[in-house]
Design a protein around this nucleic acid. Structure first.
Lengths: 232, 232
DNA sequence: TACCTTTTATGTTTTAAAACACAAAGTTAC
DNA sequence: GTAACTTTGTGTTTTAAAACATAAAAGGTA
């Protein structure tokens, strides 16, 4: 298992990052890299905790979220394999500002942030990797602020569906979203109550923009969804 | 003017960053550093433009904002002297995702991002400076998402007043906010209409939490404002 | 299987905030 | 100094979304 996961780490998109390491550095990573498995809905870390690890999602899907006022939850970011997460707080010298949980059974690898820090110091490319990731995430976060505060319910939900399709993609039929999430999560992603997510989703079905079968969502009219996302 | 500004740059909080440069590097900075002056409400850069410079606010106050749906504006971040801004888009390889404008007459210095990039490559500490800044900003942005979407109007405005006092501080009386902004800006900062900002502000005056004299806002009961910000 | 819990669905009521409308102060321009 | 415009202030109406209330499915489990 560990070997397979590491192969994956060393081969896929992160290759560009870790390949610049010399053999001794690679050995340090392999020794420190620990695999964890999380069940569906299991917490990975919680807001307020001390950040110690760089997390790398190898398999499954993960949500980053923040508990807000009166039990309401906002999903901030979605993680897919293979993506890194959980490093921001360490770099900012803060405790975790949000929580992470597995959407579905997931395999995650960890590296101590102290090690990551050392490697950044010895590896310009790794520094640039994080500067780039943080910059992209910050842009996304700023855009999200405007989308969530200014768009109406239909626009927010349409946007969420588009984001889900862009991020996790489709099944082989090229229509069915690869993520199967509860209406509540869909609501938490698009800043509305669960009943409004359900209601608005039904509306989209009636308008033949999507079909719904339990948690299986099929996108029928993406251009129109994009329009609704853009103009309300 | 230029000399004075540079002295400021080299002496204050950024000293930690630029002091590690050798003489040749320092010369490159001094040669490339260009001073600009902006009038009240003048645009510094606009969303969609190509980012080319690192901006350094030397004097004045600057807002970063995003134009949203139907003419609504969201203020994303406030810049004070001496702070850097406008580098995220370049690092993310994107165009500007938000605009920047001067709140009041402001002096800004620029450095070409290509130069900044070179310097990061030769200077580990500078890389860490940006990793740290981006990480802190990202945390702030995520927190803002929850604050702006979940808090009620009173909570959002109270929060904005606290943020303004924390960020720009008070006049010598230790009560009067150092920033004098239009009600419309206050509204754009806290995601509400101008009339609601005015109305809610009047409410705070009636409750003796603040006094208002034109754009001069005096904080009388900060603990209570913090409570309102926290619990609605 | 039957029982219990969670999730999905839909109708109704309530409410927070936007939209609208207008008036009074303040500013700026001429 | 007066006119034109902008900003501030307040009352009223409208509306989008939350809250509430059930009920039907679906899923788990004893």
């Amino acid at each position: 298992m560990i070997k397979k996961a590491l192969e994956k780490v060393m081969s896929e998109d992160m290759s560009e990052i870790w390949t610049v390491l010399n053999n001794e550095e690679k050995r340090r990573i392999i020794d420190a890299f620990v695999i964890h498995n999380f069940k569906k809905n299991q917490m990975i870390y919680a807001e307020g905790e001390e950040p110690e690890y760089l997390w790398c999602l190898l398999q499954g899907k993960v949500k980053k979220f923040k508990d807000g006022v009166g039990g309401r939850v906002q999903i901030l970011r979605l993680i897919r394999s293979v993506q890194y997460f959980g490093y921001r707080a360490y770099f900012a010298n803060e405790r975790y500002n949000s929580s992470a949980a597995a959407f579905e059974p997931s395999t995650v690898g960890t590296l101590p942030m102290t090690l990551v820090k050392d490697m950044i110091n010895n590896n310009r490319k790794l520094a640039w990797f994080f500067i780039h990731e943080l910059s992209r995430n910050l842009g996304g976060s700023d855009t999200k602020i405007v989308n969530l505060t200014q768009k109406h319910i239909r626009g927010r939900l349409a946007e969420a569906l588009i984001v889900l399709s862009d991020h996790y993609g489709f099944e082989d039929d090229n229509m069915t979203l690869k993520i199967y999430m509860a209406r509540e999560d869909l609501a938490n992603l698009s800043n509305m109550t669960t009943s409004n997510a359900i209601r608005t989703l039904s509306g989209f079905v009636a308008e033949k923009l999507i079909t719904v079968d339990g948690r299986r969502i099929r996108i029928l009219d993406e251009p129109q969804l994009r329009k609704i996302s853009k103009y309300g």
